[in-house]
Amino acid sequence: MPTELVFRDDAYAREITARVVSAAPEGVVLDRTNFYARAGGQPGDVGALRWTGGEMVVADTLKGPEDTVLHLPAPEAALPPVGTEVAAVLDWARRHRLMRMHTSLHLLCSLIPGAGVTGGQIGADKSRLDFDLPDPPTKESLTEGLNALITADHPVSETWITEAELDANPGLVRTLSVQPPRGSGRIRLVRIGDPAAPVDYQPCGGTHVRRTGEIGRVEVAKIENKGKANRRVTLVLAGE
């Protein structure tokens, strides 16, 4: 049975109740989870599973077989009994930083239109995107543009389209190295800004803040040459 992905509908669900479907050193499967499984450059969540008389520290979260989610126990951690009801508790401070970073990278995409994204990585301390771009803008201009979009406090929302609709609009996909997951018949799109004139609009399965103003000030730390036309842009949350 697939794991219900609570974070898809509510990225702010810091703690939920769930039931243990299976438990092994390779991972604990719950019937539902607020933990994001590592994918698309976003790290897996960490935190804890708590039940009456016990607790398991979650060291990472990965995708499991048949659309399940594996909550990886820390070394020597006790495993919850199958069938037990647990509280799934996120390390919220880390997750929220990742949400702010991830949304910032969408804004960065909007400032470099037309350039394909060849790679990326989201981190709590720094994040980066690689662009197929021989002549990138300056660090200063990108930093200024990002903070203007953040200060504008644009709403962040999601919508779903069919795979056929995505095929009819291939320009929605900015990533050259990773394609949106297929097979369910639906593709999740994340939109920043007014639906009539969005700042950014592209397929994404990750977690984001509700409004850009929640991100806080960011800074482009560096732009590196990673190949003939590959430029790596690294962001940090300024003053943190």
Rank of each mutant, 00 (worst) to 15 (best):
P180Y: 13
P180K: 10
P180I: 12
P180L: 14
P181H: 09
P181V: 10
P181W: 05
R182N: 08
R182M: 06
R182K: 10
G183K: 14
G183R: 07
G183F: 12
G183E: 05
G183A: 15
S184H: 03
S184L: 09
S184F: 03
S184K: 12
S184N: 13
G185H: 06
G185E: 01
G185Y: 12
G185K: 08
G185D: 04
G185L: 09
G185M: 11
G185N: 08
R186T: 07
R186N: 12
R186M: 13
R186Q: 14
R186C: 06
R186V: 11
R186G: 02
I187W: 00
I187T: 06
I187A: 03
R188W: 05
R188M: 09
R188H: 08
R188G: 06
R188C: 10
L189W: 02
L189P: 04
L189C: 12
L189Q: 00
V190Q: 01
V190G: 03
V190H: 00
V190C: 01
V190W: 00
V190L: 05
V190T: 10
V190A: 00
R191W: 01
R191K: 07
I192F: 05
I192R: 06
I192L: 13
G193P: 15
G193M: 09
G193F: 08
G193I: 10
D194Q: 06
D194S: 11
D194I: 02
P195F: 06
P195H: 04
P195L: 06
A196R: 14
A196I: 00
A196F: 08
A197Q: 15
A197C: 12
A197G: 15
P198F: 07
P198D: 07
P198N: 01
P198E: 01
V199T: 08
V199G: 03
V199Y: 01
V199E: 04
V199K: 03
V199D: 02
D200T: 13
D200F: 11
D200P: 01
Y201F: 15
Y201E: 11
Y201Q: 04
Y201G: 02
Q202T: 13
Q202F: 11
Q202P: 03
Q202A: 12
Q202S: 15
P203I: 04
P203W: 10
C204S: 10
C204Y: 06
C204M: 03
C204R: 11
G205A: 14
G205N: 15
G205M: 09
G205W: 11
G206I: 08
G206Y: 03
G206A: 14
G206C: 04
T207M: 15
T207G: 13
H208G: 05
H208Y: 09
H208I: 02
V209H: 01
V209I: 12
V209G: 03
V209W: 01
V209R: 10
R210P: 04
R210L: 11
R210C: 06
R210S: 15
R211P: 04
R211E: 07
T212F: 04
T212C: 04
G213Q: 00
E214F: 02
E214L: 13
E214R: 05
E214W: 03
E214Q: 13
I215L: 02
I215K: 08
I215N: 00
G216V: 13
G216C: 08
R217I: 04
R217G: 10
R217H: 14
R217Y: 11
R217M: 14
V218A: 07
E219R: 15
E219S: 13
E219H: 14
E219D: 07
E219W: 09
E219P: 02
